[in-house]
Design a binder for these strands. Structure first.
Length: 120
DNA sequence: GGAGTGACTCGGT
DNA sequence: CACCGAGCCACTC
């Protein structure tokens, strides 16, 4: 078949998923940054929504997305919090008191990567 | 169409 | 570092 012409432009939600999917193992990003990369400035809350709604089948590295302060967004006594902690540490990311050192682990994509990988 | 709600962010105290 | 308040924006009643 040829190129899927009907797959014109991905929805904002799909763009968010795409950005999250390209966060490399061992790195993290914030809701706000993901929104920016997806071409949706000031939509950090929309990113959280998109992640919550993302089907498991996509196997998104949702745990690599934390808030702008480097902290895990879930309540520290929740199962989700523990799960995210576990997944991050498994990738070699240091998590202390629910917090990750962004200076050390924040994903810093180069412009070329974004331009080449994000069709918009 | 107004009010409430978030896996948010930023600046001030 | 913690707590607050205001701003933000999509979504649901």
């Amino acid at each position: 078949m040829s190129f899927p012409t009907e797959a014109a432009k991905p929805s904002p939600q799909q763009r968010i998923w795409q950005v999250v999917a390209m966060i490399p193992e061992g790195k993290v990003s914030s809701y706000g940054k993901v929104a920016d990369y997806a071409g949706l400035p000031r939509r950090a809350r929309y990113v959280s929504r998109a992640l919550k709604q993302a089907p498991d089948s996509l196997q998104l590295p949702w745990h690599r997305v934390i808030n702008a302060q480097g902290k895990i967004a879930f309540a520290s006594d929740s199962d989700a919090f523990r799960e995210q902690c576990y997944l991050l540490r498994k990738e070699g990311i240091t998590v202390n008191h629910g917090r990750v050192a962004l200076s050390e682990f924040e994903w810093q994509p180069d412009l070329a990567t974004l331009v080449l990988c994000l069709p918009f």
